[in-house]
Design a protein around this nucleic acid. Structure first.
Lengths: 204, 204
DNA sequence: GAGGTTGTCTACCGATCGGTAGATGGTCGA
DNA sequence: TCGACCATCTACCGATCGGTAGACAACCTC
């Protein structure tokens, strides 16, 4: 009866749950699967998280924090609009490469409804506000096409998340598309799309 | 014991199943719920579709046909690139307004894996080929920014589907956003984004 | 109007799900 | 050293799930 200790195991369960919830959806993943993947019985999982929903909420919060950490670090020292956009997107793509189910879980959070997604977004709120102020400033001084900054942010979000989660569609639409090289190509594509969404209509 | 007759009921079941699969996901929706929403017992549903998976496949095929019909009709008589893009997007947004779960189901199809999505995409293959040829021609004569046409199509797909399915995210990121007016606003936003993705980098 | 076909039902089954109860062992501080 | 606590387990429960078996009624055909 090995004892890994409390916090460590708790984190292991959350990470595995994010993988499963991302891959199979909240309803499609069972506590049994998650527990056994961690190498523990279901009842042990229920010792850490009294219900499935409690586990979900812990995952949502953890995902929000992970994302905030990743994006926050990417923003350090970046000044121009383009540097920032590029750095954030690159960091998220790196995260997705190391942990493919992560963006899927984020999307699942959105699918589960506003309440679930709010758990993720709560931690990200300061970053959201910064991003919107930043976009607004860029529009005011003419470096970014004038538009609703919040809607623009939403469009950027769907573009990045879609590119990271719709791999099945990509395989069917584009043809064989696996591995690291493909992810890199999609990152370039997203960057081009973001450039298009940001640049003023008259070009330069 | 009313008898609605075979084909009519079959279609009613498929439409309700698309709603439920779209809203709750394939795993999250039960045959019981679908059947009772149609006003029929689960065993009657199983008379039409011997297994849940068979019902799913029927839904995938039906969704593909619905989409092909909608897009095909939107393309009639449109000539320029912009007219076509606008018409297709508008038709899809109209479909989504009348049937909000429809785009959610399409996204669920992608989530279920390449095999499931292939059932939808099969019917759409001629349209996909036309779109790619069309984009390629536009790039060749300089009306569209040069890029991989298949990847561009994928990006457009994720933009439209994302805008239609990530309503929860939108509510959190943008704030209250319900009803017809909001959908119209999002359609304009998507159109702007598509324009950005299509236009050559030097403006015009 | 008899008989097959089609559509809908009641009744039930085994598996699995999320969750409860409680025993057991390991660890550590008093 | 001994008792409290922490972590993990075995055993089990009621509900629900997808699916089967089969009765039965309405309809069509001849």
């Amino acid at each position: 009866m090995p004892r890994t200790g409390g916090e460590e195991r708790r984190i292991a369960i959350i990470e595995e749950a994010i993988r499963r919830f991302g891959r199979d959806g909240y309803a499609g993943a069972s506590l049994e699967q998650i527990a056994s993947a961690v190498g523990v019985r279901k009842q042990t999982l229920l010792y850490y998280f009294p219900t499935k929903e409690a586990l979900l909420e812990a995952c949502l919060a953890a995902a929000g924090e992970q994302l905030a950490r990743t994006i926050g670090k990417a923003l350090e020292g970046r000044e121009t609009y383009w540097e920032r956009a590029e750095a954030v997107i690159h960091s998220v793509f790196q995260l997705a490469e190391a942990w493919p189910e992560f963006p899927m879980f984020i999307r699942e959070a959105g699918r589960l409804g506003p309440d679930a997604f709010a758990h993720v977004a709560g931690v990200l709120e300061p970053l959201r506000q910064r991003a919107i102020d930043f976009l607004q400033a860029g529009m005011d001084n003419g470096e970014i096409r004038k538009q609703d900054p919040a809607l623009l942010l939403f469009t950027l979000y769907t573009g990045v998340v879609g590119s990271l989660t719709e791999a099945s569609v990509l395989n069917v639409v584009v043809g064989a598309d696996k591995g690291r090289a493909s992810l890199k190509r999609r990152e370039r594509e997203v960057l081009a799309f973001v450039r298009g969404a940001l640049q003023p209509p008259t070009g330069e």
